[in-house]
């Protein structure tokens, strides 16, 4: 249960701050985090680095529960960060909690 102990939940804004099928970034001391809102208002977050060549996933087109990277069109699953076959690789996901309309990210 390491993660839940180390995690700090930080509120970063509300669902309404992100357009449907869109994304916003959260700046951190390290890499940016891309926060996505799906058509059904589910929220996911991954570090804004494509496992391929570090493309900014926040700038891609969102569809279903995936995002297509703007640089070379890899499709990254937002639920697990995994690149869809035939590509291989994984973007680092960030835990999300939604409280009412407030979005909270679990950062360590």
């Amino acid at each position: 249960m390491k993660t839940s102990i180390d995690l700090a939940w930080k509120s970063v804004g509300t669902i309404d701050d992100i357009p449907r099928l869109g994304s916003r970034t959260v700046t951190t001391a390290g890499d940016d985090i891309a926060v996505f809102r799906l058509a059904d208002d589910r929220i996911f977050a991954v570090y804004d680095r494509c496992p391929h060549k570090a493309g900014k996933l926040s700038q891609g087109i969102v569809h279903g529960d995936s995002v297509t990277c703007p640089l070379h069109n890899w499709v990254i699953g937002l639920t697990d960060g995994k690149a869809k076959s035939p590509d291989e690789g994984c973007a680092r996901t960030v835990p999300v909690r939604v409280d009412g309309r407030i979005i909270m990210l679990g950062v360590s």
């Binding site: 970063v12 701050d17 700046t27 940016d32 926060v35």
Partner: peptide, 11 residues
């Protein structure tokens, strides 16, 4: 404007 501004900054 949201395209050009981060949603938030966390430490």
């Amino acid at each position: 404007a949201h395209e050009f501004r981060p949603l938030a900054t966390v430490e």
